[in-house]
């Protein structure tokens, strides 16, 4: 019961969707499944949110180390959830009711997003610039030919995006304009990079096909294992 039904669901769903690709009247089924996915994803968000809440509330009530920060998570979560689920302070609520745009200008939800989530997201990712810089200092040593190719390629891309790089090769005449660093950078991204990306994509596609076949045929069952109560 615990393993057999999910195994049957896996095989039936997988086979039906693959066959649907080749049977035109069933084609819409694939579109419907994409919508099902979106609906299930919301429940997955709720599962994630509920789990986050459960763990953090346990931490707060048992006063474990750093419980104060867990409280910050819980408060932030509830405030954002209340503003979003009930559309509190949404100026469009007066006219459109619950059909009001969640991110309407001036809504408290949008304001809190602009005040908290947007700057935190941007700052978190921009912080990576420092770590990437320090990582590249360690990684970008021309120890062998492979590392040298990597270094030169990244260097050209970076120079091509900067003012200094453009000025440094700006004197070149048109008949050798390929060697202007901005063109070289563009060429590396659009052509040389494309070759490697395609090889990787083809490899990924083959990997996905073989893995999908294993799942659909019921050979791969790791997603059904563990967590048995």
């Amino acid at each position: 019961m615990k393993r057999t039904i999910p195994w049957i669901i896996t095989i039936v769903t997988g086979f039906v969707l693959v066959i649907a690709e080749f049977v035109p009247p069933w084609g819409k089924m694939r579109e419907d499944v994409l919508i099902y996915f979106q609906i299930i994803s919301v429940f997955a968000f709720f599962l994630g949110g509920g789990s986050l809440l459960k763990i953090n509330l346990q931490k707060v009530f048992s006063k474990r180390t750093d419980w104060e920060y867990a409280l910050v998570t819980v408060v932030g979560f509830f405030v954002m959830l209340a503003l979003g689920l009930f559309k509190l302070g949404n100026p469009e609520m007066a006219t459109a009711g619950y059909a009001a745009d969640l991110n309407a200008n001036g809504s408290w939800f949008k304001n809190l997003f602009d005040a908290v989530k947007a700057p935190l997201s941007a700052s978190m990712y921009s912080l990576l610039a420092f770590f990437i810089a320090s990582a590249s200092y360690r990684a970008f040593r021309a120890k062998n030919s492979d590392a040298t190719v990597l270094l030169v390629s990244a260097f050209i891309i970076l120079m091509g995006q900067t003012f200094v790089g453009v000025v440094a090769t700006g004197w070149m005449p048109d008949w050798v304009s390929f060697f202007k660093v901005e063109n070289l950078s563009l060429w590396l991204l659009a052509k040389a990079n494309l070759a490697g990306q395609r090889a990787i994509l083809i490899g990924i596609a083959l990997g996905i096909v073989s893995m999908s076949l294993r799942v659909i045929l019921g050979i791969e069952r790791t997603h059904l294992s563990g967590g048995d109560e």
Binding site: F45, V72, G76, L85, V116, K117
Partner: peptide, 13 residues
Amino acid sequence: HLYVGVSAAYWMC
């Protein structure tokens, strides 16, 4: 911690 809480609720909403 604030980021984690707010982001989770944002995507839920």
